[in-house]
Design a protein around this nucleic acid. Structure first.
Lengths: 220, 220
DNA sequence: CATCCTGTTCATCCGTGGTTGAAAATCTTC
DNA sequence: GAAGATTTTCAACCACGGATGAACAGGATG
């Protein structure tokens, strides 16, 4: 399992190397975007940890470049208060992000989620823990029990479940559920997140990421 | 038993009409792909004889279009020994083919094979609780009593009965019963659901799933 | 304390579905 | 080919439930 760290700060790279190697990863490093892309192309890592603030290219450019030819999971490392950048990164195909400073435990946990998500392939049935969505028949089961759901609720939940464990941005959900004209109506999100939480009970958690979006996770 | 002949050569159509009518088929004709698709959607034939060389659309396009919404048996009429085209047709869902010139005896024989295969795969009787549908004869029984049914009603009920107990999507029913141009005409669904409910009484329930579709269930 | 974002509840409105009946199209039958 | 019967299509109506929009409460953050 190869991890590629793209970050200009050597302290961060050393920290990540220690954390990752202790978990069995082989770690490669790149100190700027240009080298990062080269490394990614040459060594084909299984996961990439990408800093958004890089000296040459900015992180977003690196991410978009990557996404032109690979689906490798990308975890963003960002400093706080760059919410718009985080949103842009997620919409450009990043899988998740952690905010510096971060605990290595959190980092490892998020990596695990990303990897697990990779392995699930898409079929007419979408399964997230105890939840099963039959996309063709618009039926939902929770712990084997059928769950009644309005069309809008279904679309909302599908939007989250498609990227289970991963953040889905507000505008992403709004576009998928309400189409073009839904853009900006963040109010709907709160109403329907509420509906779904009531229906899902404590079997599944819809967690809010303030200012960014929502994610569907299984309770620990 | 309705057969639809899609061929631009009038001689061929004449020949086929004679051969088929002598075997008890009702024959409909279309001289190009566009008309053929219309006929297929409107009259819902039990078998289609399709020429691969048509003036407007090529036969393969017609076939693929058909296969988007119906499983009606299709027999290909091909001119030469164009192996690659025949293979493509079979892979696109054709049931068999004959090469021009062909003997009517061979044609009839192949039709018989197709029909028999249909019936072995798809059993000629579809049973849901007290309801029995004789798919080959277009006859319906409810609690042993014969039930009169128009062609559209029959197709609608078959669409539901095939997936008894499961939700069948609105557009799924519309495509199966009315073909491509039925898409969006959800109005028809309400009218015919109403017809069927009246005929089925309380022996079987057609339940609506708001915004999604319908399902056929046995009352508890 | 002020502000922003979120969660929660509720009243209104509109879309969807059910129902009926009439017009239009199609198929029979002579 | 014309008259009648059957079937499909279409229009009009009502009823209900879900979508929408507003109001208010809670909580984090500075």
């Amino acid at each position: 399992m190869i991890a590629l760290v793209i970050d200009d700060e050597i302290q961060i790279r050393r920290l990540l190397r220690l954390a990752l190697e202790s978990r069995g990863y082989t770690v490669r490093e790149a100190e700027n975007g240009q080298l990062g892309l080269q490394e990614a192309a040459f060594h084909r890592p299984d996961v990439i940890l990408l800093d958004l603030g890089l000296p040459d290219l900015d992180g977003l450019s690196v991410l978009r470049n990557l996404r032109e030819w690979t689906d490798v999971p990308v975890l963003i490392l960002s400093v706080q208060d760059q919410e718009n950048v985080k949103v842009a990164a997620l919409e450009s195909g990043a899988d998740d992000y952690v905010t510096k400073p971060f605990s290595t435990a959190e980092l490892i946990a998020r990596l695990a989620v990303i990897q697990r998500r990779r392995h699930s392939n898409d079929s007419p049935e979408l399964v997230v823990g105890p939840l099963t969505m039959h996309l063709d028949r618009h039926e939902v089961e929770l712990c084997g029990q059928p769950l009644k759901m309005t069309p809008t609720e279904f679309a909302f939940l599908r939007s989250l479940a498609r990227h289970a464990g991963k953040i889905v941005t507000q505008s992403q959900i709004l576009r998928e559920v309400w189409g073009q004209q839904g853009d900006g109506q963040t109010h709907y999100l709160r109403v329907y997140a509420n509906h779904l939480r009531n229906k899902l009970g404590d079997k599944l958690v819809i967690r809010n990421e303030p200012g960014i979006g929502y994610r569907l996770i299984e309770p620990a």
